[in-house]
Simulated assay, not measured.
Amino acid sequence: MQRAIGRRRNRKAFLAAAIVVIAVVVVRTQVIDSVTVTSDSMEPTVCRGDTLALARGQGSQGISRDDIVTFSSPSDGDLAIKRVVATAGHRVAIKDAQLEVDGIAVDEPYVDHASIDGVYFGPVTVPADTVFVMGDNRERSIDSRVYGPIPVSQVTGRLLWRLSSACEDQVGGS
C-alpha cells in the first residue's frame, strides 16, 4: 500500500514538473524572448552587449509612441531595435536636432542633441499600419529617416526589461 501511494506521488510530481517545463518552453518560444544587442544605435538607453527581455509577436497589438521595438531591418535584414517616435497619422519632423510630432517638440532627455545639431528632416506623415522608428543615438542610427516607416506587422517584439547591462562597461572608453 505504501508503495502504491509513493508511486502516485512520484507520478504527480513528474506530471507537475513536466507541466512547468512545457509552460517555460511555451513562454520562451511564444511569449517572451531574449536578445543581446549588437548595435550602439539606442545608446544610452540600450547599450551594445545588453541582454533584453522582449514581448514577442507584437505586430499591431498596442504599439505606441515611446515603445522600444524590434524588427527585421530593411537595410540589412538583421534584427534592429529602435524607439517608436510616431504612429499612423502623426506628422514627424526634425528641426535643428529637435524631434517634432504633429508640430509639438518632443522631450527626449536620452538624445544628445548637440551631436546632431543642424539636422533637419521631414516633415512626413506616417502611413496607416506603420510606425516611425528612430534610435536614441541619432548620430549613429540608421532608422526610419533612411528606410521609411516600418509596417506594424513586421514588429517582432517590444522591450519589457533589461536582463543585463553592458552600459557601465562602456563608460570611459571602448
Rank of each mutant, 00 (worst) to 15 (best):
R3E: 04
I5C: 02
R8N: 02
N10C: 02
N10W: 10
L15M: 03
A17E: 00
A17M: 00
I19L: 04
V21H: 00
I22Y: 00
V25P: 00
V26S: 00
R28S: 00
D33N: 01
S39D: 07
D40T: 11
D40P: 11
M42T: 02
M42A: 07
P44F: 09
C47T: 11
G49S: 07
T51P: 09
L54Q: 07
A55P: 06
Q58A: 08
G59M: 02
G59N: 06
G62Q: 14
I63K: 09
S72V: 10
P74F: 09
D76H: 09
G77S: 13
I81K: 12
V84Y: 14
A86G: 15
G89K: 04
R91K: 13
R91V: 15
I94F: 12
K95P: 01
D96S: 04
L99H: 10
D102W: 08
A105R: 11
D107C: 08
E108V: 11
P109M: 13
A114T: 14
V119R: 08
V119S: 07
Y120T: 13
G122I: 12
G122Y: 05
V124L: 12
T125L: 03
T125H: 06
A128Q: 11
T130E: 13
V133S: 10
V133L: 12
N137V: 10
R138D: 13
R138S: 11
R138Y: 13
E139A: 15
E139S: 14
R140N: 15
R140C: 04
I142L: 14
S144N: 12
R145H: 15
Y147L: 03
Y147M: 10
Y147D: 04
V152I: 13
V152R: 10
V152N: 04
Q154D: 11
T156I: 03
G157D: 03
R158G: 06
L160Q: 09
W161C: 09
L163V: 13
L163R: 02
S165R: 05
E168W: 08
Q170Y: 03
G172P: 09
G173C: 01
